[in-house]
Structure formats: structure tokens, C-alpha cells
Measured scan of single mutants.
Amino acid sequence: EEEEKKKEEIARLLGVSKEDVERILKKNNLDIEQLLRRVQREN
């Protein structure tokens, strides 16, 4: 699934687990696209 791939990509870029990414998304109330763009910009 596309969303899972995005979570895995974010996890890889941040050096965290996919579960961490899911927690970040919930905690910050971000959607996956916003987080992915933010992470890609910083790297």
C-alpha cells in the first residue's frame, strides 16, 4: 500500500521505526504527505 511505503520512507530518512512514524503522525495530527515533504526538505 502506498501509505505504508511512505511511512517506511519517512522512518528510513529519520532513522526511526515505522511505529515511531505513526506516533509522530498521531501526536502532531499531520497527514503522511505533509510529514514526508517536511522530512525530504530537511534531508
Rank of each mutant, 00 (worst) to 15 (best):
22 E>V: 07
42 E>T: 07
6 K>W: 13
13 L>I: 14
24 I>V: 04
32 I>D: 01
31 D>Y: 03
42 E>I: 09
39 V>R: 00
3 E>D: 15
9 E>H: 12
13 L>R: 06
17 S>D: 05
7 K>V: 10
17 S>C: 06
37 R>E: 15
34 Q>M: 07
10 I>E: 00
32 I>L: 14
27 K>G: 07
23 R>T: 12
32 I>Y: 04
40 Q>R: 09
9 E>I: 14
5 K>M: 12
24 I>R: 02
18 K>P: 07
24 I>G: 01
1 E>Q: 11
43 N>Y: 14
16 V>Q: 03
19 E>C: 08
15 G>E: 04
21 V>G: 00
38 R>G: 06
37 R>Q: 15
16 V>G: 03
36 L>E: 04
42 E>W: 05
16 V>K: 05
7 K>Y: 06
10 I>F: 02
22 E>Q: 05
27 K>F: 12
18 K>H: 06
22 E>S: 05
26 K>Y: 10
30 L>R: 02
30 L>M: 14
27 K>I: 13
30 L>H: 04
33 E>L: 04
38 R>D: 15
37 R>M: 12
22 E>F: 03
6 K>D: 05
5 K>E: 10
12 R>F: 09
28 N>M: 14
36 L>P: 00
4 E>Y: 05
43 N>F: 14
39 V>S: 04
41 R>K: 15
11 A>D: 00
10 I>C: 10
4 E>D: 11
21 V>D: 00
9 E>M: 13
25 L>M: 11
39 V>D: 01
35 L>Q: 01
28 N>K: 04
9 E>S: 07
15 G>L: 03
38 R>K: 15
2 E>K: 08
1 E>F: 12
41 R>V: 08
30 L>C: 05
29 N>P: 03
40 Q>W: 06
7 K>A: 04
16 V>H: 01
6 K>M: 15
40 Q>P: 02
10 I>M: 03
35 L>W: 06
43 N>M: 13
11 A>I: 02
14 L>R: 01
39 V>N: 01
42 E>L: 12
27 K>R: 13
20 D>T: 14
43 N>P: 07
11 A>C: 06
3 E>S: 11
24 I>Q: 03
40 Q>H: 07
20 D>V: 15
28 N>F: 15
8 E>D: 11
13 L>T: 04
14 L>M: 12
30 L>D: 05
14 L>T: 02
21 V>W: 01
4 E>Q: 08
19 E>Y: 10
31 D>S: 15
19 E>I: 10
10 I>D: 00
34 Q>F: 05
5 K>G: 10
43 N>K: 08
19 E>K: 12
34 Q>E: 15
14 L>E: 00
5 K>Y: 10
14 L>A: 02
9 E>D: 07
42 E>Y: 06
22 E>L: 05
7 K>T: 04
12 R>W: 08
20 D>F: 14
29 N>H: 12
26 K>E: 12
19 E>N: 09
3 E>R: 14
26 K>V: 13
18 K>Y: 07
12 R>I: 08
7 K>W: 05
33 E>Y: 05
31 D>W: 02
34 Q>R: 06
21 V>E: 00
7 K>N: 01
23 R>Y: 13
15 G>Y: 03
31 D>H: 06
11 A>G: 07
4 E>S: 08
30 L>G: 05
33 E>D: 15
42 E>G: 08
4 E>C: 08
21 V>K: 00
43 N>V: 14
17 S>A: 07
19 E>L: 11
28 N>D: 14
38 R>A: 15
43 N>G: 10
4 E>M: 08
36 L>A: 04
41 R>D: 14
9 E>W: 10
10 I>A: 10
14 L>Q: 01
33 E>R: 03
8 E>A: 13
13 L>A: 05
21 V>Y: 01
31 D>V: 04
10 I>W: 01
8 E>T: 10
1 E>W: 13
32 I>Q: 01
29 N>V: 04
11 A>F: 01
13 L>Q: 04
37 R>D: 15
5 K>W: 14
11 A>W: 01
38 R>N: 14
11 A>V: 03
27 K>D: 15
12 R>M: 09
23 R>H: 11
12 R>G: 07
40 Q>E: 11
37 R>H: 14
26 K>W: 09
7 K>H: 03
28 N>W: 15
28 N>L: 15
23 R>K: 11
43 N>H: 14
16 V>A: 04
1 E>L: 13
1 E>V: 12
41 R>Y: 10
8 E>N: 11
15 G>T: 02
32 I>N: 01
3 E>Y: 14
6 K>E: 04
3 E>V: 13
41 R>H: 12
15 G>W: 03
15 G>S: 06
2 E>N: 11
27 K>H: 12
9 E>F: 11
38 R>Y: 15
11 A>S: 06
41 R>Q: 15
39 V>Q: 01
35 L>V: 03
31 D>R: 05
28 N>E: 15
34 Q>Y: 07
43 N>W: 12
19 E>T: 11
38 R>S: 14
11 A>N: 00
8 E>R: 10
35 L>G: 00
34 Q>N: 08
30 L>V: 09
34 Q>T: 15
27 K>V: 14
8 E>L: 14
37 R>N: 15
18 K>D: 02
37 R>A: 15
4 E>V: 07
13 L>G: 02
20 D>E: 15
21 V>T: 01
41 R>S: 14
39 V>W: 03
8 E>K: 11
26 K>I: 13
2 E>I: 09
31 D>C: 05
35 L>N: 00
14 L>F: 03
25 L>V: 06
12 R>N: 08
36 L>V: 03
22 E>T: 07
30 L>S: 03
32 I>A: 15
1 E>A: 13
8 E>Y: 10
23 R>I: 12
18 K>S: 06
18 K>T: 11
33 E>S: 05
2 E>V: 10
30 L>A: 05
1 E>I: 12
14 L>W: 05
6 K>F: 10
16 V>M: 07
37 R>G: 11
16 V>F: 03
40 Q>N: 08
20 D>R: 11
9 E>R: 07
3 E>H: 12
43 N>D: 08
14 L>D: 00
36 L>D: 02
26 K>F: 10
17 S>P: 06
2 E>M: 10
12 R>S: 06
2 E>P: 08
43 N>I: 14
17 S>Q: 07
8 E>V: 10
3 E>A: 13
1 E>Y: 13
42 E>D: 10
10 I>G: 01
38 R>I: 15
11 A>R: 03
10 I>H: 00
10 I>Y: 02
34 Q>P: 01
34 Q>L: 06
21 V>I: 08
12 R>L: 09
20 D>P: 00
36 L>Y: 13
2 E>Y: 09
39 V>Y: 04
12 R>H: 08
31 D>P: 05
30 L>Y: 11
10 I>N: 00
4 E>G: 07
21 V>M: 02
6 K>I: 15
29 N>T: 05
33 E>P: 02
10 I>Q: 00
24 I>T: 03
41 R>N: 13
26 K>G: 04
3 E>L: 13
25 L>T: 02
17 S>K: 09
13 L>M: 08
27 K>E: 15
6 K>H: 08
37 R>V: 14
13 L>H: 05
26 K>M: 11
30 L>W: 14
21 V>N: 00
27 K>T: 13
31 D>Q: 07
15 G>V: 02
8 E>H: 10
25 L>F: 01
15 G>R: 10
38 R>F: 15
20 D>M: 14
22 E>K: 03
12 R>C: 09
36 L>H: 05
31 D>F: 03
8 E>I: 11
16 V>I: 14
7 K>R: 05
30 L>I: 12
22 E>Y: 03
30 L>E: 14
17 S>E: 07
27 K>Y: 12
25 L>P: 00
1 E>R: 12
6 K>T: 09
7 K>D: 01
12 R>K: 10
12 R>E: 06
7 K>G: 01
22 E>H: 04
41 R>I: 08
20 D>H: 12
41 R>F: 09
42 E>H: 13
20 D>S: 09
31 D>L: 05
33 E>G: 05
32 I>S: 07
8 E>S: 11
15 G>I: 02
30 L>K: 02
17 S>M: 06
28 N>A: 13
43 N>T: 12
31 D>M: 05
19 E>D: 10
9 E>G: 03
5 K>I: 12
40 Q>C: 07
28 N>P: 03
22 E>C: 04
16 V>P: 00
17 S>L: 07
39 V>I: 11
22 E>W: 03
2 E>Q: 10
20 D>C: 08
10 I>T: 04
42 E>A: 09
14 L>P: 00
36 L>C: 05
33 E>K: 03
35 L>A: 02
36 L>W: 14
5 K>S: 10
25 L>S: 02
28 N>I: 08
24 I>S: 02
17 S>R: 09
23 R>P: 02
23 R>Q: 13
4 E>P: 03
43 N>L: 15
10 I>L: 08
16 V>L: 10
2 E>G: 11
25 L>H: 01
29 N>G: 13
3 E>T: 12
36 L>R: 03
39 V>T: 04
7 K>M: 12
34 Q>V: 11
35 L>Y: 05
33 E>N: 09
39 V>E: 02
2 E>F: 08
6 K>G: 06
16 V>E: 01
